[in-house]
Every structure is written in C-alpha cells, then in structure tokens.
Design a protein around this nucleic acid. Structure first.
Lengths: 250, 250
DNA sequence: GTTTTTATGATTGATTTTGACCAAAATTGG
DNA sequence: CCAATTTTGGTCAAAATCAATCATAAAAAC
C-alpha cells in the first residue's frame, strides 16, 4: 500500500468519525504502528488533522472553542499565580498596557482590586474580557492578526507612539540568556518593543516552561525588562538572576 | 475510548441537559470515576464547563459563544437568514463596515464566500469572530463600552472620518415609521450615523420583532437606509414599504 | 551495477494516561 | 448539632502511548 493511499484512508475515516484511533488504523491499512505514526505526523504538519493521544481528530472539531485550547490549560495554575502577582504591582489610577495572549489574560480577574484603572490592550480577546470585568479599556486601532487575535501594523504603532503608560505587561514565546525575550512574529515584536519604550516600567510574564526557548524575533534582552514567572528550579534561578530581575509567583 | 471522545460526550450531555452527574457519565463513557474527574478538571480549566458537587454544569460565562447565549437565541433562524441575505449583497474586493451586535454577527459565516474583503468593525466580539473565519479585519481605535463591547468615543469618530466603505451593515434596537431607526446609546448612534455617511450604500439589519420599537437616539430615518429583515406580516409589509426599501430574507 | 535516498517495521526507554485506593472535605438527613 | 454518606483531591503502580533510534528493504539517482 502506498503512502498516499494510507493517508487517504486516514482522512476518510476522520471525515466519518471525527476521531480515529491509531490502533483502528492498523487493520484498515495493514501498516505498522510506526508507519501510521509517521503518517499522522505528516498530516498534522500540513494541518489536515490534529494529533491527540491515541490517534487524531479533525482540525475543526465540532466542540473546539478557539478561545482556550487544552494546550493553554497546561500551565493554568502557574499562570494564575503569575497573573495575580503581576496585578498586585498595579496601583490605583494608573494607565497600563496589556499585551495580547493567554498568560496576560490571567491578570484581568485580579485587576478589579484596583480602582480607576485605564487599560490599553492590543488583544481583542483580552479586551472582551476586560469589558466583562468592567475595566476601563481602550483599543488602539490596527489590523487584526487572525492567528493570535492581536492588533498589529503601522496604524497601531503610530497610535501607541502618542501614549504613555505607567506599566506595561507583556507575554513572550520564550526567554533565554543569549536570545533574550523572543516571539515568532516580528510585527508583534515591534509592538512589544514600543510598549516597553512608552512605559515607566515594563514586565514580561511567562511560566517557567518557556525558559531557554527561542523564537524568531527578539523584543528585549533579559536585563532590560524584569521577568515575572513561577517557581524555577534553584539552578535555573541562580543562573537567571545574574541577568535579570526575577519575581517568582508563589 | 480516547480522551477527546470522552470529553466530547461530556460536552454533548451538557448541551442537552445543562447539567450532568459524574455517575451518569461512567456508563456513558465506560471510563472510571477518576478518569472522568480528570476530564471534568481539564474541561473546567479551558472554561468549557463549571464543576459542581457531584458533576458539572454549563458555563454561564459571558465568554460563551455569543451565538448561543439565550438572548441571541430567540430569533436565531431569522437572524441567520437575514445574515445570509445581507452577506449576499457584498461583492468581491469590497471594503465593508460591520456594526457591533449579534444580528450583524450572523453575516460573518457567509462572508467567506467572497474573496479579498476588508472588514472594518467597531465590535470586538465580531472582530474576534472575523479572525476565526480568516477575514481581513481592521479595528479603528476607541474606548471600549463594557455593556455592548462596542468601540465608541471621539477617537473612533476621527478615525472613521478618514475612511470610506463600499457598504455598511448596521444593527438597531428598534425601528418605527415615526421615530426611524433608534438605539439607546447616543455614542453608538453617532458611529452608526457616521458609518452611513461614509459608505456608498448602507443597510440596517433587524428581525421583524423590532418593528415599532423605539429607543432613545435616532441614527437614521427609514427612507435614508434600506432595511433587511425577515418575513413581515402582509399588513406590516404594506405599511413599511411606503417609507423604506425592504429586503425580506427567505 | 553501485551508491544514495527513502520508506518501513521493530525495539527501546520515556512520557502519558488510567484505575484503584485513601484520607479529607462537603453534603445530607436526622 | 452530630453522624452517615457521598464526593473530592491526592498518590501510586500498571498499562498504554509516544518519540527516537536502528537495521533492513525498496526505490531512485548516479
């Protein structure tokens, strides 16, 4: 049986059942477990399916809610603590910038402790949540990036140049000693960079799992912006503290 | 049975019964109590349900998909038809303005029929949904109004004055022969008025239940902007047609 | 015809998931 | 109010699944 044939069968099964188990595919294709694993990997790489433990499911699952995938839920407790720690830094009457992204989202419930805040954010989902919590919110205009639902582009850059923040809270896709804070999208990086420049004090929020992860575009070095993260190992902590100011959420 | 499968079953049950007991899930899934507990935990973490003693219930959150919220669900089929009719008016390569609000939201799934659209909207929830459907979207900057999640204020007014649209699609809180199209918030009315002025062609979308409802602030008279609505009674239809151009969605 | 590349299946150890168990907490029913 | 019951969160070991590696066989390139 040819590779194409097998993969066709997999996709057919997926159309019918929405979910397919790896073990059910073995008799259907006559291929080995290893081969089928590779097939699933390939198909996932071209976004034809989504791998799950034990098999695969359709990309556009019927029940999938785009807001928070299971993946986002992995470090949920860490993120909650980080969010609370960050929110505690805020003072009443301040103007703060909130980045897009789920890590930052966890700050929002704790922001209501403070009175008379004005929040500027480039994340539409975060904006929506801020509205739910009745926080004064302002959105700078911009192009909406589909994948991350963040506002980007020259328009928002121009807008932010006219603003000044008491504090800015930023997400990141990775941080490492050599590469600093990095993110895959250079347009988003530009906004993060500007938010740092326009604020009296900026912070990066990240759970410790992103330590030593490197992405394409750097928006700050570690010594430029302090990091708020959850408990690092003692080794990690001692290494990092030479390069940046760390606040560990407990 | 795979993890995803079980969790889908749980969510299905939840959709049907609004509440589900842990013990009822055991025979339905064939999984152990422990496993189902973990499933409930996972699903709660991504806000798909709310755990309660002995089981789980639907999340009543404001973050729920707005399409399914109770208020929106009343005239859901009418709104779908209206949304489809309105979306059919759009041509490829056009720049269109979409108002905030749930009625307008129903246009979005039908917009993907058209290529190379640019959509400007003042509704952050609509913007989020447009991103899900991969539609080019631009948000004008502005203050976010908590209750309706619409962008308002002088900032967005200034921005919109510099733009021009091929078509604008607006929601309304009521329409009547004497009062025209009305909405409770004067700031939102100002934006609707401006969107009409800046577009080659504007439309108001409204299900027929809003006939003869009057709210505080008028943003257009009936003869200024055509109405897209669902089947009116013959009497209503004959009265209205003297004052405005009506498109009835079927 | 030989070498290189590619695809496959088997094996390994690591990771994840699972079900059972138990003590603590919450709920129920007097 | 207390006692009985149910539900819960945590830990644990077994089972399933996974990613990575390796050797072999087929196909392609030279």
């Amino acid at each position: 049986m040819l590779t194409e044939e097998r993969q066709q069968i997999i996709l057919e099964q997926l159309k019918i059942h929405n979910i397919v188990k790896l073990h059910d595919l073995i008799p259907l294709t006559g291929a080995s477990e290893s081969t089928l694993r590779r097939d699933l990997q390939d198909l996932e790489n071209c976004h034809k399916l989504l791998r799950i433990h034990g098999g695969a499911q359709n990309v556009i699952s019927l029940h999938e809610e785009p807001a928070l995938s299971q993946k986002a839920a992995v470090h949920i407790n860490e993120k909650k603590m980080i969010g609370q720690t960050a929110a505690n830094l805020v003072q009443n009457h301040e103007v703060i910038f909130l980045d897009s992204g789920t890590t930052i989202q966890f700050m929002i419930p704790y922001l209501i402790e403070h009175t008379d805040l004005l929040v500027i954010t480039n994340g539409v989902d975060n904006a929506s949540m801020l509205a739910d919590y009745n926080v004064n919110t302002f959105l700078p205009g911009g192009k909406l990036k589909s994948s991350t639902k963040a506002l980007v582009g020259s328009n928002i850059i121009q807008t932010l140049e006219n603003y000044h923040f008491d504090r800015a809270f930023l997400g990141t896709n990775g941080f490492s000693i050599e590469a600093g804070y990095t993110t895959p999208d250079s347009e988003e990086a530009a906004i993060k960079r500007l938010a740092i420049a326009q604020s009296n004090q900026a912070y990066v929020l990240s759970d410790s799992s992103k330590f030593s992860q490197v992405s394409f575009s750097r928006f700050a070095t570690l010594d430029e912006v302090p990091l708020i993260t959850d408990r690092l190992s003692e080794k990690e902590s001692s290494i990092l503290s030479k390069y940046t100011k760390i606040t560990e959420a407990i």
